[in-house]
């Protein structure tokens, strides 16, 4: 995918986001009462419109310049765009969500080694037992000592199960 194609997709998505946002704002937020009262609706609506207009400009300029450069056959569009690794991104999101869920249910001291082990085995493909145990226990105990004991920051206690 070229930079141009990527920009066209980004422009389209943001245009739709902006338009959808503006519509939702108009639909759900009451306007001001007039007489100098700007009201809660004006700013979200204005920001939504700004996004819509700018992404439309992005979309149009990219379509237009694309046609020119196709003829010239040399431009910045030839750059290799950054590759998006959706798999890793969604995996990390899943791990973060799981971590948050486990923190509430079984508390920091149990959730952390579980998630660290999972991350290292699934995402990093670490198989060395020493590394796995060292990282999961080291991080858990280290963070617990520094945050909970030294700095007095509350780390989650579990609602299902509670240690420490």
């Amino acid at each position: 995918m070229t930079n141009r194609a990527q920009d066209i997709i980004v422009g389209t998505v943001l245009f739709l986001v902006g338009a959808g946002w503006t519509w939702l704002v108009i639909d759900s937020i009451p306007p001001g009462f007039g007489d100098g009262e700007v009201g809660p609706r004006a700013f979200p609506m204005a920001f939504g419109l700004i996004l819509t207009v700018f992404s439309a400009i992005l979309l149009m300029t990219r379509i237009a310049t694309g046609a020119e450069t196709a003829l010239a056959e040399a431009s910045e569009d030839q750059d290799i765009p950054n590759r998006l690794d959706w798999g890793s991104a969604l995996l990390v999101l899943g791990q973060i969500v799981l971590y948050g869920f486990l923190l509430e249910k079984i508390g920091f001291l149990l959730a952390t080694p579980v998630v660290v082990l999972l991350v290292m085995i699934v995402s990093l493909r670490v198989r060395s037992l020493r590394k796995l145990l060292g990282m999961s226990l080291g991080l858990t105990v280290g963070c617990w000592l520094i945050f909970e004991k030294l700095l007095g920051i509350y780390l989650a206690n579990g609602t299902w199960l509670n240690v420490g």
């Binding site: 990390v92 948050g100 290292m120 990093l124 991080l139 963070c143």
Partner: peptide
């Protein structure tokens, strides 16, 4: 991995 734990904390 450490940053992940710190982020959550």
């Amino acid at each position: 991995v450490a940053v992940l734990v710190l982020c959550a904390i």
